[in-house]
């Protein structure tokens, strides 16, 4: 069976946003960012103006995927944390619940130790929310959403997207 679609509803979205917003304050970080392992951005919080979040999501997922493969090559299950140190900003990347990627961008106002500590705590909360989200995603769409809006898509709707 191929993996089921990922469906994010308002309730879980709000909870995720609350957690990453709090995590950013607790870490004193610039940005906290949640990405699906396939490169889809789920939620972001912080100083996002200067960052291309779509590109960041795709590259973070590519980075984690490549690192996972490297881990398996040398007989490790995974490398659960990636850390990239820059001159000003640093990237802390970790996998939550085996399915999504948590990215924290921070500078000298914070520290790796603080970020690691807070991320650990936040990850447990996020994993619980994500589990609910995955369960709902696996349900047939009609049951989960009270009627799927996509069943009503017409050929005309699709053609309109490509009208220019």
């Amino acid at each position: 069976m191929p993996p089921s679609d990922l469906v994010l509803h308002e309730e879980e979205y709000q909870k995720i946003r609350d957690v990453i917003s709090r995590l950013r304050t607790e870490c004193n970080a610039k940005v906290v960012f949640l990405v699906d392992k396939n490169g889809q951005q789920i939620a972001a919080n912080g100083e996002l103006e200067a960052i291309d979040t779509t590109a960041l999501a795709s590259l973070a997922a590519g980075n984690v995927a490549a690192t996972d493969s490297l881990a398996r090559l040398i007989g490790e299950k995974e490398f659960s944390i990636l850390f990239h140190e820059g001159e000003r900003d640093n990237l802390h990347i970790s996998v939550v619940g085996g399915r999504v990627i948590l990215v924290v961008i921070f500078d000298e106002r914070s520290s790796l130790g603080l970020v690691r500590l807070r991320v650990k705590k936040g990850s447990t909360e996020l994993a619980a929310i994500l589990e609910v989200m995955m369960k709902k995603s696996a349900l047939p769409r009609k049951a989960a959403a009270g009627g799927s809006p996509f069943a009503e898509i017409t050929d005309e709707d699709i053609d309109k997207l490509f009208s220019d």
């Binding site: 994010l8 308002e10 396939n38």
Partner: peptide, 15 residues
């Protein structure tokens, strides 16, 4: 695996 975000009203597909 399409990503459907009902909260942000977005559909993301991968080709």
């Amino acid at each position: 695996m399409t990503f459907i975000n009902y909260a942000a009203r977005e559909i993301n597909c991968k080709i």
